[in-house]
């Protein structure tokens, strides 16, 4: 698309209109994993620690809790990998540990139920628009 005779702003508009058309058709064309929409892989430290990365399923939790519980009351920021979660915080009742404590939900000894990701899977929100467009995981922590 190097040399085009179309005026630049106009060309950009056309390009992005086409992008929209494709989105509107609902066709998901970038080949990738087909995991459930909203699944979050958190892998800031797991690979390095030799654990499979944990996967947080939004669909499962939103059947049980409104967004407000986690994102306002418990302080989870809207950013995959952006909360510096670790096991010490979890056993002290922060983040996942506010519920996975044997009272509200099963407790932390069930390592595998959270740590069930394929080793090497980067931090990402699965099925995110950004991920689909760029064809790689959405930018992780640190950007907004």
């Amino acid at each position: 698309m190097g040399k085009s005779h179309i005026h630049k702003p106009k060309r950009n508009f056309i390009l992005w209109l086409m992008a929209l058309l494709m989105l509107a058709s609902g066709v998901e064309i970038v080949p990738q994993a087909q995991a459930e929409y909203g699944d979050v892989v958190i892998n800031n430290q797991s690979d390095k620690a030799g654990m499979r990365p944990p996967i947080f399923p939004h669909w499962f939790h939103r059947i049980r809790f409104r967004c407000k519980v986690c994102h306002a009351d418990l302080g989870f920021k809207f950013q995959a990998g952006g909360n510096q979660i670790n096991m010490l915080k979890i056993i002290d009742g922060e983040f996942c540990g506010a519920c996975h404590n044997g009272e509200i939900a099963w407790s932390v000894e069930n390592c595998d139920v959270c740590h069930s990701g394929k080793p090497g899977t980067p931090t990402q929100v699965h099925g995110s628009t950004v991920q689909k467009l760029i064809g790689k995981p959405a930018p992780a922590a640190g950007q907004k």
Binding site: E28, I29, Q34, A35, E36, I55, D112, V113, S116, K118
Partner: peptide, 28 residues
């Protein structure tokens, strides 16, 4: 290019991000 309807909401074991060899995956 379009995925068939049957591919929607796949089981975790073959969704590409869960490890099918992990015991926890089978519990989900």
């Amino acid at each position: 290019l379009m995925k068939p309807k049957s591919d929607r909401n796949p089981a975790q074991a073959n969704d590409g991000i869960h490890d099918p060899t992990c015991e926890g995956t089978g519990l989900l």
